[in-house]
């Protein structure tokens, strides 16, 4: 049962809520509770920030030998997306063919199923990216 582990990340995974250091203004996604730039001064000074979900492909690969959890989607496109607010994030690209993806391609966040805990377990939803 891995419900709590995923549950506590839901606002980040469902809609790209980042954290922002109130001291230096840097934005972090995946979220951080300590700002690497400001160290302990940032503790208690990290606020939430809703990202736009828009970005561009920083790098990508076509995964042919993937994880079993993504068997139905093989080959799938995995990418690091540079979001327009700055942070980079790892996620899949959907609604595009492998030969259509390129570094610099504009993408937007979409909401998809990521994994599930077997047929009777919980479904984990989260972000993927689609051409913009």
């Amino acid at each position: 049962m891995v419900v709590p582990r995923h549950w506590r990340e839901r606002e980040h995974r469902y809609r790209l809520v980042a954290t922002k250091c109130k001291i230096c203004g840097r934005i972090y996604f995946p979220p951080r509770s300590v700002c690497p730039n400001c160290g302990r001064k940032s503790i208690g000074n990290m606020e939430k920030l809703q990202l736009s979900g828009n970005g561009t492909v920083y790098t990508y690969t076509i995964v042919h030998s993937g994880m079993n959890a993504f068997k139905l989607q093989k080959p799938y496109i995995l990418a690091i997306i540079e979001l327009e607010e700055g942070p980079r994030v790892t996620g899949q690209i959907v609604d595009a063919e492998p030969n259509e993806v390129y570094i610099g391609m504009p993408v937007r966040m979409v909401f998809r199923r990521i994994r599930q805990e077997g047929a009777s377990g919980i479904i984990h939803y989260g972000y993927k990216f689609a051409p913009r």
Binding site: F111, R112, Y125
Partner: peptide
């Protein structure tokens, strides 16, 4: 729907 879509994901997309 794709293999990673269901009534919930589509509801989210339409609502967004």
């Amino acid at each position: 729907a794709g293999p990673d879509e269901d009534a919930c994901t589509m509801a989210v997309e339409a609502s967004r």
